[in-house]
Amino acid sequence: MNVREWPARHAADAGLGVGFAAALAFQASRVADSWGGDYWQFDCAAGAAVCVIALLRRHGRARAAVAGLAVAAAALLVARFAQLPAEPGPAMALGLSVLVGSAVRALPVVPACAVAAGGLAVVAGAFAAFSHSVVAVLNGLGWLAAVVIGLWPRLLDARRRAVADKVRRDERLRLARELHDVVAHHITGIVLQAQAAQLITRKHPEKVEGSLADIEAAGSDALAATRRVVGLLRDAEGDPALPTPGQERLGDLVERFGGHGPAVRLRLPAGEPVWPPEVTSTVYRVVQESLTNVSRHASHARSVTVSVAEERDTVTVEVLDDAPPAPARYYHRGGYGLVGMRERVETLGGTLRAGPRAGAGWSVLATLPVTSRERR
């Protein structure tokens, strides 16, 4: 238990103790008035025992609940066969409510259900033995209140945990997509440049130095990008904000790809679109992953067309290549990259279609909604 919680818990237990004492005093006075003599002594002794157990429940909720229920069951049997006032009395019912509610709130599912069932059995016994007494009704209401009060915060905690788990899962997927996009794109560029360097070594040895410089630059870019994403993973201050590249970086991306791949035509909307950061980032990642897939699976493509169009409430991204069909290509295009693209687009309420074009080539078409409110 946290040290800061001690005063509050002690104050709560003190208030509960005062409530138990008041209930016992009321119970003794009522029994003395209606039954006379010393009948109140057994009733108050049994009630006090359960109340003390309830005050000590923090030392072992399961043991305390079992002990309290056992005392209540014994008191019920003694009262029934010895012709004593109905049990459990008001004070004992209050103590049992505290024990049952505490167990339902804090114990694992199986012990919590067992304690709740034990409390229900005591209530049923009270109804069977003293059906004519208001005490039986009081016990039933106390048990029901205890279960509700214990179960409600438990359900709220479960809901909070589920929401937190979903947030963490979504964040892991988002960061996994970001890592995949960054690493796969840059490493693909390095591999292609290394392959080109091997050809240059055999045909134009004098150009090897330039090729190695290009590979070094691509490796440095990959390392810097990876470090940025790892820095986001290590950031403990709230929700990490992933980069949102704009149109200028989209042009750089296409230019880098055209330097070691097929020619790329880029068509962008006129002016500087004002899109939400998540839309801008998704447009960039869709183009990046599509170009990476062209490099990896469509090396015979002669040209690629990247079109980004903006209508009133929609942003459309289309990447087309003219590579001849290859049987293995359709299988490989179903990897994590396509899954990540689809997750990004569908998270924003958009759609993604990817597949072979009629005749030859491959098409990736993403449609993203952009509302008027988001534009402002």
Rank of each mutant, 00 (worst) to 15 (best):
Arg312Trp: 10
Ala263Phe: 13
Val283Ile: 14
Phe257Gln: 03
Arg344Lys: 09
Val274Lys: 08
Glu237Met: 14
Glu289Cys: 10
Arg357Ser: 07
Arg312Gln: 12
Gly335Ile: 00
Ala328Asn: 04
Val339Tyr: 00
Val279Gln: 08
Tyr336Glu: 02
Ser290Cys: 02
Ser299Tyr: 01
Pro262Gly: 04
Pro276Glu: 11
Val279Cys: 12
Ser299Gly: 08
Ala236Thr: 11
His297Leu: 03
Val264Pro: 05
Pro273Asn: 09
Glu237Asn: 15
Val279Gly: 10
Gly335Asn: 07
Gly261Pro: 05
Glu272Ala: 14
Pro245Trp: 12
Arg256Thr: 08
Glu272Ser: 14
Thr316Arg: 15
Gly271Lys: 09
Glu255Leu: 10
Glu318Val: 13
Ala309Thr: 15
Ser295Gly: 12
Thr280Ile: 06
Glu289Ser: 13
Tyr284His: 14
Val319Thr: 05
Tyr331Gly: 05
Leu338Gly: 01
Ser290Asn: 02
Arg265Glu: 15
Val287Trp: 04
Trp275Tyr: 10
Gln247Met: 15
Leu250Lys: 09
Leu338Ala: 04
Phe257Ala: 06
Glu289Phe: 03
His300Thr: 01
Trp275Thr: 08
Gly258Val: 04
Ser295Cys: 07
Glu248Met: 15
Gly251Trp: 09
Gly271Met: 14
Tyr331Asn: 02
Thr282Trp: 09
Arg353Gly: 07
Leu266Trp: 06
Glu278Tyr: 08
Thr316Leu: 14
Gly261Glu: 06
Leu253Pro: 05
Pro273Trp: 04
Arg344Glu: 04
Gly258Asn: 10
Glu255Met: 07
Val264Met: 12
Val283Gly: 03
Leu338His: 01
Val345Arg: 01
Asp313Lys: 12
Ala358Cys: 10
Pro324Trp: 02
Val274Met: 06
His297Pro: 03
Ala358Val: 12
Pro277His: 07
Ala263Pro: 11
Pro327Leu: 00
Leu338Asn: 01
Val279Glu: 08
Val274Asn: 05
Val308Leu: 08
Glu346Gly: 14
Pro262Val: 02
Asp322Pro: 05
Ala323Leu: 03
Phe257His: 07
Glu311Met: 09
Val319Met: 06
Gly251Leu: 08
Ala298Val: 00
Tyr284Ser: 04
Asn293Met: 12
Arg302Pro: 09
Ala270Asn: 13
Arg312Lys: 10
Glu346Tyr: 10
Arg357Pro: 03
